[in-house]
């Protein structure tokens, strides 16, 4: 599952950058406002104070906006992770239900699932501790029960479900 992981990394990088911006802005705002307060203390209110007040307001608004953005990004990352989990669970259920409808034997279910995950006959045989001939025969029976001619068509049955 490469795509979702990329998306998650991007979300993580974005939220880390936003957090850094929020903190830098907060430190900068406090320093600026402290300096402005000192100016007012020294020279009284003047035209400069108005500009300093405006900049202070902008800095505070920036902090609030970045904070809000950070929260949104974190929520998005989390909801994407949840959606992916739900999708995985749902797909597993669809596959299980379809296998039951085709009346696959436990051994055939295993082989069919490995085949869906993209393993070849030799790999499945090694995993199941069976001969490649046995696995090939089981896969042929699975394709017959599913009414498809081969692996590509078999996998396409489920992809079609996903795409809707």
């Amino acid at each position: 599952m490469k795509l979702p992981r990329f998306a998650k990394d991007a979300g993580r990088r974005q939220s880390a950058a936003l957090a850094a911006v929020v903190l830098v802005q907060a430190v900068a705002a406090l320093f600026f406002m402290g300096d402005a307060a000192a100016d007012i203390d020294l020279d009284g209110l003047g035209p400069e104070s108005a500009v300093e007040a405006l900049v202070s307001l902008a800095l505070v608004l920036g902090i609030v906006t970045s904070g809000w953005q950070l929260r949104r990004t974190l929520e998005t990352v989390q909801s994407q992770a949840q959606a992916l989990e739900v999708a995985r669970g749902a797909l597993a259920e669809v596959i299980e239900a379809q296998f039951t409808r085709w009346a696959l034997t436990p051994a055939e279910r295993d082989v069919a699932l490995f085949a869906l995950k993209g393993l070849d006959v030799a790999e499945i045989a090694t995993l199941r501790g069976a001969a490649t001939g046995t696995v090939r025969a089981q896969m042929t029976r699975v394709y017959a029960k599913a009414g498809v001619s081969g692996r590509a068509q078999f996998a396409a049955l489920f992809v079609e479900d996903l795409l809707g």
Partner: peptide, 22 residues
């Protein structure tokens, strides 16, 4: 003093985050 100011700003942000954060 500068580090003190920075800590004050960071703690204030963190305390605000305690109300609106995840």
């Amino acid at each position: 003093v500068g580090l003190g100011w920075a800590v004050l700003a960071i703690v204030l942000v963190r305390l605000g985050w305690g109300f609106v954060g995840p």
